[in-house]
Design a protein around this nucleic acid. Structure first.
Length: 396
DNA sequence: CGATTTTGACCCGCGC
DNA sequence: GCGCGGGTCAAAATCG
């Protein structure tokens, strides 16, 4: 439901939702094949091609003037309108792939994202999530710091690469990441999560992950610093060691949750918000076993996770799309894949389920309190297919 | 019991 | 110089 803005949820749900539940005002239709399922490899092509997008009278389609503002914004930053539209999630009819995995090279493009988001807000393109209070188990009193903190580089001097990534890309990261912070970001309904590399002690690589405000199906991943150690040759623990905090029956039943069930992507969720109810979406109760076909599939790829559905038709569709995507992805990225297909599909599927996407086809709900990589793996692992994320960007 | 997550507090860059 | 906002720290909670 709308209250569940778990980052994780968004991440995982991204794919299917992107193709079916983009913002209501979007004029575009994008087939799953053209959407976020595409690997990042197609991104560069997109960016290099001036004729990437065909914009069929966008302004006419938006009498509210949404695109006029967008154009202004693009002019200001000298950014191709097509890029902006793609980044905004306002799909358009195009023969080019959606810019998933695109690397935003500079601050201007990042600002573009912000600007697009704000415009969407103004024009009703983006539904703002309802309040969803966070529950804190117990207050703590922080000691006064006695030691000086480490010096910080100026933000604009830090080496950084920003990318829009799909959940799969995020998963495809062999580095292990440990979350060390979370911060609500002004102008965005989604908090930003901070990760540092835990593959090796002292590694300076860091990652910021937040939901793409213009397309909650995707994530904005920023890489900082570089790894001071070789990349692990094995996929890092999607292993079970991590804290797996899937929704428990208690939480889904609207029972008050503890802080362990706090959704990560809660919008405007000031950590100081009073605890009230469960962070999970009560409006989209997960009902196990309502879709036998889907259950069957899920059981194939995942043995021990409960499966819960609500919307049967959309679920089936989603499963098919997922299967397709997984196959395609592995065909295209054989060189980069270090793990069996089943693992990937397992993770992806788990994410969808946890996100609640499978539930209602919406990417905006989540029943997890943590991101996929954190909730399912012991080390908050993004799994990297080669260069896609691996702390990639600058990290590698 | 160690590793990880949560989250309020603190630090500090940056714009004004 | 001041205040805002983002980034980090670290105690407590949680999990395997």
């Amino acid at each position: 439901m709308d209250n569940d803005w778990d980052l994780f949820a968004v991440v995982k749900s991204c794919t299917a939702a992107a193709s079916t539940t983009t913002t209501p005002d979007n004029n575009i239709s994008m087939s799953p094949a053209e959407g976020p399922f595409l690997s990042s490899g197609s991104m560069s092509t997109f960016l290099d091609d001036d004729t990437s997008f065909v914009f069929p009278s966008l302004k006419e389609d938006r009498p509210d003037g949404a695109f006029e503002g967008l154009e202004e914004f693009c002019k200001e930053f000298s950014i191709d309108m097509s890029l902006a539209a793609a980044a905004s999630g306002m799909t358009v009819t195009t023969t080019k792939p959606f810019p998933v995995g695109q690397v935003f090279q500079n601050q201007q493009q990042i600002q573009l994202q912000q600007g697009i988001y704000q415009m969407q807000q103004q024009h009703g393109n983006l539904q703002m999530p309802a309040e969803n209070p966070i529950i804190r188990s117990s207050p703590r009193i922080r000691k006064t710091k006695s030691q000086p903190s480490r010096p910080r580089k100026r933000r604009n001097q830090q080496k950084m690469a920003v990318r829009i990534m799909t959940p799969e890309e995020i998963y495809a990261d062999s580095w292990a990441w440990r979350k060390y912070g979370r911060k609500p970001i002004k102008g965005s309904p989604y908090p930003r999560n901070y990760y540092r590399c835990s593959t090796s002690k002292g590694c300076a690589a860091r990652k910021h992950v937040e939901i793409n405000p213009t397309d909650p199906d995707l994530f904005v991943v920023s890489d900082f610093g570089e790894h001071t150690h070789p990349r692990p040759n094995q996929r890092n623990s999607f292993s079970r060691s991590t804290r797996t905090r899937l929704i428990s029956p208690a939480t889904t039943s609207s029972e008050p949750s503890t802080n362990t069930n706090i959704p990560i992507g809660l919008p405007n969720s000031s950590s100081s918000s009073p605890a009230s109810s469960s962070s999970f979406s009560p409006n989209t109760p997960l009902v196990e076993g309502q879709n036998p076909a889907q259950n069957e599939y899920i059981e194939m790829v995942e043995e021990h996770v409960e499966v819960e559905y609500e919307d049967e038709d959309e679920d089936v569709e989603m499963v098919e799309v997922l299967e397709e995507h997984v196959e395609v992805e592995y065909e295209d990225e054989d060189d980069d894949i270090l793990i069996p297909n089943v693992s990937m599909s397992e993770e992806i599927f788990r994410g969808f389920r946890e996100l609640g996407v499978i539930n209602n086809g919406s990417a905006h709900s989540s029943d997890l309190q943590t991101q996929p990589w954190t909730s399912t793996s012991s080390t908050s692992t993004f799994n990297a297919s080669g260069n896609s994320s691996g702390s990639g960007g600058s990290g590698d």
